[in-house]
Design a protein around this nucleic acid. Structure first.
Length: 643
RNA sequence: GCCGUUGUAGCUCAGUGGUAGAGCACUUCCUUGGUAAGGAAGAGGUCGAGAGUUCAAUUCUCUUCAACGGCUCCA
């Protein structure tokens, strides 16, 4: 007999060789039907695998993350079975579960998959699932495995086998399909009831663009149709929040073929948001002791050689222009220009920390396939700033920058993000990273301490640092699930030396400053793209391109509407009158749909009483008040940047 | 850059080997109406661009540009 410990601490005895599924059955048939996999001694196992020693057991169902991913991984195998049945000779690479569903990479030879093919595969999968085939696990020796795939002529699985140790190799089979797989899998194909193959894409073998491109099919499955329908509905909802769609509806920016891809043309509405953001940043930075600078859009090749950017990032820069025998590049970053400003005058420790900021437009040649609405563009306003300080000052300065981030996030109500502490990889010192082992450890420790001190939750990621130092990135997700770095705060102990920067310290000796690169609002393009999705297009009043729309009941009240308009304009409130000869219902409907935060209905009653009837977007009628009260209220709201 | 899909009116989308249609938006007229669509008329497109096949191409083929979904990349 063996002792099985359940999550609630209960211990029960079973015959050795019992499976999790059998244990579930001993509890209830209903539970057994729901079991997809099991966590045995904290390791995810097949529910059908026999347990021979004392163990802790956690039965996994659809409600568990591990249950879901097992379900999806098994679905990937089911898809592979369907694909093999439809297109014999196909070779498979890997087919993991992902956050939402699964994919399988395959080599289909010359065959191309279309939408119609996906439907055919779906149909076949449903047919195979109904056979309720069991997922069978088989331990196999390496030589047998090699023989199997050599006979099959499958170089991909043979490649996988190379890195596996004998005695640790398993095959899984269901129906007519056998795959090299670590598992685990669900007991049978029966629970895979609702299937949707979402898209087909190319994916480089082993993720290396030098390798052959395989066909990747993405899909998702559910234990019932209802959940699939709900999932698809959720995707539709997300699409409505997509910043690209919202920006079009709000006339914020356009991309134009003649201008070039990735080069946004900010229209008046969008420009207002850019400027409001910059106004916030300027005020915040002024309070934090920054000075503003302005630098050119281009610079000579020599500066980017000094900075080290050219050898490393040439591919990401627009090609140079030649003039008078000199090569000039469009700037892809502001840092070198700022370093030159630091270097322009002799600096003493009394001048430090030296903080400068600029929202310079930078140009980066992002690969065409990488462009993504406003989130990834070729012209971007960096919310850039550089701090030059001594080692002693570094901690406080870095901390202040971090606090600035948190202040911004509070204003915007941003709470779904991940702070990522990006560290170096010691084995890559001198190659990917500046060879300063001690400085790395020292600054990494300081950066970590800043996060701890400010109580900021974070994750640590090795081998993600900049070449010149560790950094903190703020990661966010677009509504369609893509991850982006929103903001970044970086330590740089390399550029100071590269640019020969120095200040005179207290001992009258030259000393190289540490540099902090910071962009708490990232780029204004990406930040606005993010805000659009964050607010679902309903900007807070201070950011809204149009803040108030006045809706006269009829033409008769236009003069009064203009009087209200003038009162608001006197306080620089962005206001417009809907002067069309339309009924009030239509004006309201269109104003609501345009997402203007305040609507003022004005008619005879209001005119006689000197009032405006206020309507808040999404909330409806909130009652009448005197013009002056409304002006006072909205001016305060704008000033406080309340959301 | 690579794989795949898509490009028709300002927007959302139908459609066809014989030079195009709807709804919304727009313009004009009627209507002057108190909290989410009043009515009528009108205007608007070299069917992404270039080439080929054809008597004839928006439609078929090729090239190219762009967007979209991924991959790779992301200072």
């Amino acid at each position: 007999m063996i002792k099985i410990t359940f999550p609630d601490g209960a211990i029960r005895e079973y015959e050795a060789g019992v499976s999790a599924l059998e244990i579930a059955k001993s509890i209830s048939e209903g539970l057994a039907r729901k079991v997809l996999a099991a966590k045995v001694n904290n390791e995810v196992w097949d529910a059908t695998r026999t347990i021979t020693t004392d163990a802790t057991l956690n039965l996994l169902t659809w409600d568990d993350t591990d249950g879901k991913s097992t379900f999806w991984h098994s679905s990937a195998h089911l898809m592979a079975e369907a694909v093999e049945a439809l297109y014999p000779g196909v070779k498979f690479w890997v087919g993991p579960a992902i956050d939402r569903g699964f994919y399988y990479d395959m080599d289909l030879g010359d065959r191309k998959l279309s939408e119609a093919d996906l439907e055919a595969i779906e149909k076949k999968m449903a047919e195979l699932a109904k056979q309720q085939n069991t997922y069978l696990r088989k331990e196999i020796s390496k030589s047998e495995a090699i023989q199997y795939f050599t006979e099959k002529g499958d170089e991909y699985k043979l490649d996988l086998l190379q890195n596996l140790e004998d005695g640790n190799i398993t095959f899984y089979s269901q129906g007519n399909f056998t795959d090299l797989c670590r598992g685990p899998h669900i007991p049978t194909t029966a629970p895979i009831k609702a299937i949707k193959l979402t898209n087909v894409a190319g994916a480089y073998w082993k993720g290396d663009e030098k390798n052959k491109q395989l066909t990747r099919v993405y899909g998702i499955t559910f234990p019932n149709q209802k959940e699939l329908d709900e999932y698809l509905a959720l995707l539709e909802e997300a699409k409505k929040r997509d910043h690209r769609k919202l920006a079009k509806e709000l006339s914020l920016y356009i991309f134009d073929d003649d201008t070039g891809s990735g080069l946004p043309l900010w229209m008046p509405n969008g420009a207002i948001i850019v400027e409001e953001l910059e106004k916030l940043a300027k005020e915040t930075e002024e309070d934090a002791g920054y000075k503003r600078v302005v630098t050119p859009h281009i610079a000579k090749e020599s500066m980017y050689l000094t900075s080290g950017h050219l050898p490393y990032y040439k591919d990401s820069m627009f090609p140079p222009m030649e003039m008078d025998g000199e090569r000039y590049y469009l700037k892809a970053m502001n840092c070198p220009h700022h370093h030159k400003i630091f270097d322009a005058e002799p600096r003493s420790y009394r001048d430090l920390p030296f903080r400068i900021a600029e929202y310079g437009t930078c140009y980066r040649y992002e690969q065409s396939g990488e462009l993504f609405g406003l989130m990834r563009v070729r012209m971007l306003h960096m919310n850039d700033g550089h701090l030059y300080c001594s080692k002693e000052q570094f901690f406080e300065e870095f901390k202040a920058v971090n606090e600035m981030y948190l202040k911004y996030f509070k204003i915007f109500g941003i709470d779904k993000y991940v702070m990522r502490l990006s560290l170096h990889a010691p084995e890559k010192l001198g190659q990917k990273y500046v060879n300063e082992p001690e400085l790395w450890l020292e600054t990494e420790a300081m950066v970590r301490q800043v996060l701890i001190d400010t109580g900021t939750p974070f994750i640590e990621v090795p081998d993600e640092a900049a070449f010149y130092g560790p950094k903190i990135d703020v990661q966010i997700y677009s509504v369609i699930g893509r991850e982006f770095t929103l903001a970044t705060n970086q330590v740089d102990f390399s550029s100071g030396k590269r640019f020969n920067l120095s200040f005179t310290n207290k001992n009258n000796e030259p000393e190289t400053p540490l540099i902090i690169h910071r962009a708490p609002l990232g780029t204004h393009e990406r930040f606005i793209g993010f805000l659009l999705e964050h607010y679902a297009g309903k900007f807070p009043v201070w950011l809204s391109p149009l803040q108030v729309k006045i809706l006269p009941i009829s033409d008769k009240f236009l003069p009064y509407a203009q009087q209200v308009e003038a009162a608001l304009k006197a306080h620089r409130v962005r206001v417009a009158i809907d002067d069309r000869s339309e009924k009030i219902g239509k004006k309201i409907r269109e104003a609501e749909l345009s997402r203007v935060p305040y609507m003022l209905v004005v008619g005879e009653k209001d005119m006689n009483e000197g009032n405006v009837s206020v309507r808040r977007q999404g909330q409806g009628d909130v009652g009448a008040m005197p013009i002056a009260s409304f002006v006072q209220q909205i001016v305060t709201e704008i000033k406080e940047r309340s959301s």
